[in-house]
Simulated assay, not measured.
Amino acid sequence: MAGYFSVLLVLLTLGSGLIWLIDHLMFAPKRNAHLAMAEASAGGKLDEETAALIAPEPMLTETAKSIFPMIAAITIFRSFMFEPFQIPSGSMMPTLLVGDFILVQKYSYGIKDPVWRSQLVDVGEPERGDIIVFKYPLDEKVDFIKRTIGLPGDKIVYRDKRLYIQPNCKAGETQQGELLCNEFNKIDFKLINDDEFKQGSMALARLNENLTTLNHDILINPQAPERKGRYYQQPGTPTDEWVVPADHYFMMGDNRDNSQDSRFWGFVPKENLVGKAVFIWMSFEFDNGPDDILPGWVPTGVRFERLGNIQ
Rank of each mutant, 00 (worst) to 15 (best):
V10D: 01
S16E: 09
L18G: 11
A38S: 08
G43R: 10
G44V: 12
I54V: 15
E57F: 02
P58D: 10
M59N: 10
T61D: 13
E62T: 12
T63K: 02
S66W: 14
A73P: 00
T75P: 02
I76A: 15
P84R: 13
P88D: 08
G90T: 09
G90C: 01
P94C: 10
L97Q: 07
I102P: 00
Q105I: 00
Q105W: 07
K106C: 08
G110S: 08
K112W: 02
P126R: 06
E127N: 14
D130I: 03
I131D: 06
I132C: 07
F134Q: 07
F134D: 06
K135Q: 15
L138Q: 13
G150F: 09
G150H: 07
D154M: 12
D154H: 13
D154A: 12
K155P: 01
R159W: 01
D160P: 03
K161P: 02
L163R: 00
Y164G: 01
Q166V: 01
P167D: 15
C169T: 08
A171R: 13
G177S: 14
L179W: 13
L179Q: 13
F184M: 15
N193W: 05
L207A: 00
N208Y: 03
N208Q: 14
E209A: 07
L211E: 03
N215L: 08
D217V: 05
D217M: 01
A224K: 15
Y232V: 00
D240Q: 09
V244Q: 10
P245T: 05
P245R: 09
A246W: 01
M251H: 06
M252S: 10
D257R: 04
N258V: 01
D261N: 06
S262C: 06
R263G: 05
W265D: 12
L273W: 09
K276L: 05
I280T: 07
M282Y: 14
E285Q: 05
F286P: 04
F286N: 03
F286E: 10
I293G: 00
L294M: 12
W297L: 03
P299C: 06
T300C: 11
R303K: 15
R303H: 04
E305P: 02
E305V: 05
R306E: 08
R306I: 04
N309V: 07
